[in-house]
Design a protein around this nucleic acid. Structure first.
Lengths: 255, 255
DNA sequence: CACTGAACCAGTTGCAAATTGGTTCGGCTT
DNA sequence: AAGCCGAACCAATTTGCAACTGGTTCAGTG
């Protein structure tokens, strides 16, 4: 790969012209080349011939192209897969719960170390709000706000960003029915008690207790989720289909 | 705070009307209220008076507003700061290390449970590559590849995405000098040994040992980072300025 | 003094137009 | 027949603009 000109250009006039242009570097700082139509006209060849030359240069790694964006100098930059929707399709509720079980106990521990009295008041307020909701949507909403408030109190902006990322995936519409079934019924009171226990530990600055209480809470949530996913559905098969569709393609790691 | 109506509405006609509207909930499912101009006309008051009432409701947490979007019922949803550059400015190397200490031991544990023989071969190969590098850049590159390979083997696509997110922030140009100093010198051999220990635990499927070995490794890395950040710099003050600039504004949580 | 109405600023959304690379096809030159 | 060109499409992306939104100021009014 140290050879700057690995392919013979004898049969290709356009390649020579292009290589000359690349060395002159008459383009803007952003390393962007003119569009194919303009470039073809400048060189004086057809677009198809130009594209064949560009294919060679791309294979050599000297340029990279993307539909709708343009053609650029240098190696292809890594894909920033901050894309939320794509990630939602590739993961599944069980993975999300595993991640929450890693992240949120740590957040509770940190929160216990840094919470001010005002923070604790706010957490209690949110816990009461969650408990007072009668419909599933309301519970979901305020529960999410409570967990995020704990993440805020923890005081690590990067962990907070990670929590938000997970939370946004968790609220994906695909798993809506699943979540409603998982947190319906008798577990609700247990959740309320566990919330209070977590906040009490934070209020008394007992870091380890807060971490453990949050872990127990999330384990119960996960158990509820598992029960819903494994048991047959009495009515409505949409959520079933959604789950299986998501769990199917869970084993595709990047190269 | 269990009081649903904490403030007296006697001096404010609009507040009463608004609270009544909120309970009727005649709005669309997205919990979105009409625009201020429309709402003011409906109630029959001016926009300024309406806004004062909305301020109260927002302070109570019943609604939230955002310029250009609208006014909504329920608690304020988390900001979607998927912006990588902005996040890089708001966090700092210590936060990143704290997060790595939460994430990567868990990844090592999961990797120990799921690694195939091929995976282990690949990890060993990367560890040898890392150890064989003579320059700091090369070590950095292969070390990063090794840690990511462990994250891949763990088999949780969401955790992998989080790892990538942290890794991209970690490689931010701002902290480049800092990282080079942190991993220079005598620690290098210790890092190599720790890598081998982590991989050995993964190879023998000892999940807890793998988690602990990774934790010890990252704690050593963090200690090196701390030593570099607290000690005065013998030459070059750019990194010093960058660090202090980043650690200054680390304490700004949303309301 | 509190309130109104109007105007303006700033952030957000939605959509159509323009531009880009990717592809196919017919016709032309060699 | 092979190679090339021009034109026309397709699909992804960017750009620009109009129409909202809340945030703010200001003169006028009771």
């Amino acid at each position: 790969m140290s050879n700057p000109d690995p392919l013979p250009d004898s049969s290709n006039f356009a390649l020579g012209r292009l290589r000359a242009l690349l060395e002159d570097n008459p383009f803007d700082k952003e390393q962007r080349l003119p569009s194919e139509r303009v470039l073809a006209a400048q060189i004086g060849i057809g677009r198809r011939a130009l594209r064949r030359a560009l294919e060679v240069l791309e294979a050599e790694g000297r340029i990279w192209r993307h539909q709708g964006k343009g053609t650029f100098l240098g190696p292809r930059p890594p894909e920033a897969h901050a894309d939320l929707e794509e990630l939602s399709k590739r993961t599944n509720p069980l993975e999300v719960m595993d991640v929450r079980l890693e992240i949120e106990p740590a957040l509770a521990r940190l929160a216990a170390l840094r919470a001010s009295n005002g923070d604790i008041e706010r957490l209690l307020h949110l816990a009461n709000k969650t408990a007072s909701m009668s419909d599933a949507d309301g519970r979901e909403l305020w529960d999410s706000a409570l967990h995020r408030a704990i993440a805020e109190v923890a005081g690590n902006s990067l962990l907070l960003a990670i929590f938000d990322m997970v939370d946004r995936i968790r609220q994906d519409a695909t798993w809506r029915l699943l979540r409603e079934r998982a947190r319906s019924g008798a577990r609700q009171q247990a959740y309320v008690d566990q919330h209070r226990r977590v906040i009490a530990a934070i209020a008394q600055r007992e870091a380890h207790a807060a971490e453990q209480a949050m872990r127990e809470h999330l384990e119960l949530v996960r158990d509820g989720l598992l029960k819903v996913m494994t048991s047959p559905l009495p009515d409505g098969k949409d959520s079933e289909a959604a789950i299986s569709a998501n769990t199917e393609d869970q084993c595709l790691h990047g190269t």
